[in-house]
Simulated assay, not measured.
Amino acid sequence: GLSEPVKESAFQGIDISDDIAATTSELEITSDMLADGSTLKEIGLQSDTLAVMVRRDDRYIVPKGDTRLYMGDVLLLVSNDKCI
């Protein structure tokens, strides 16, 4: 038995070609992440990580640096393989 249920992906069906040296991941926004500001540029992603999409409830948003984030938003991130 697992202690926690496996979370379903917020971005099912989105894949990156194996020919690209990058990987995708998801990051759910927490209140701690919003402590220093609530925009994408203020949450402190690594410099070689790109936020491609935000899922908020049943909507999908293409983010910019000034996109305001809220607790529970899920970011789809693309990073160089070496960062993971």
Rank of each mutant, 00 (worst) to 15 (best):
L76I: 06
G37N: 02
D48A: 09
G37I: 02
K82Y: 14
A51K: 00
L45W: 00
V78N: 00
P5C: 09
V52W: 03
D73A: 09
V54E: 05
G1L: 11
K64F: 07
D48W: 07
V78T: 07
L69T: 01
L45I: 09
D48P: 01
D48Q: 12
A35N: 08
T49Q: 10
A10N: 11
D15L: 14
T49G: 08
G72A: 11
L75K: 00
G1A: 14
T24M: 13
D18S: 15
V62A: 11
I84F: 11
D15R: 15
A21D: 15
A51I: 01
D81S: 10
L75E: 06
I14W: 06
M33L: 15
T39L: 01
S25Y: 08
G65V: 03
V74W: 03
K82L: 14
G1Y: 11
G72S: 09
I20R: 01
T30M: 14
D57P: 03
I20N: 04
V78L: 14
A51M: 02
I14V: 13
P63E: 11
K82W: 14
L75T: 04
S31G: 04
C83L: 13
I29F: 07
Q46S: 13
L2V: 07
N80T: 11
D58K: 10
R56S: 07
F11H: 03
R56T: 07
S47N: 11
D15H: 15
N80V: 13
E42I: 00
D15P: 05
L69F: 03
D58R: 12
R55Q: 12
V52Q: 06
L69G: 01
V6K: 12
A22T: 06
T23R: 04
V62K: 09
R59H: 12
S17E: 11
I14P: 02
M53I: 11
A22N: 10
Q46E: 15
L40K: 00
G65K: 03
I16H: 05
I14Y: 10
E8L: 14
S31Y: 04
M33N: 05
I29L: 12
G72D: 08
L2Y: 10
S3N: 14
L75N: 02
S25L: 12
N80P: 10
D19R: 15
F11G: 06
M33R: 03
R59P: 00
R59L: 12
E8R: 11
F11T: 06
P63G: 06
D81P: 11
L75R: 00
A51R: 00
K41A: 14
L34I: 07
L40G: 00
S47E: 15
E28Y: 04
Q46Y: 09
S3A: 14
D58H: 12
A51D: 07
S47G: 08
Q46W: 05
I43N: 02
M71W: 03
Y70W: 08
Q12Y: 02
S31F: 05
D19K: 15
T30Q: 10
V6S: 10
L34G: 04
T67G: 06
N80M: 13
Q12K: 14
G1R: 07
D57L: 15
A22L: 10
D19Y: 15
G65P: 01
E4M: 12
T30Y: 09
M53N: 04
L69S: 02
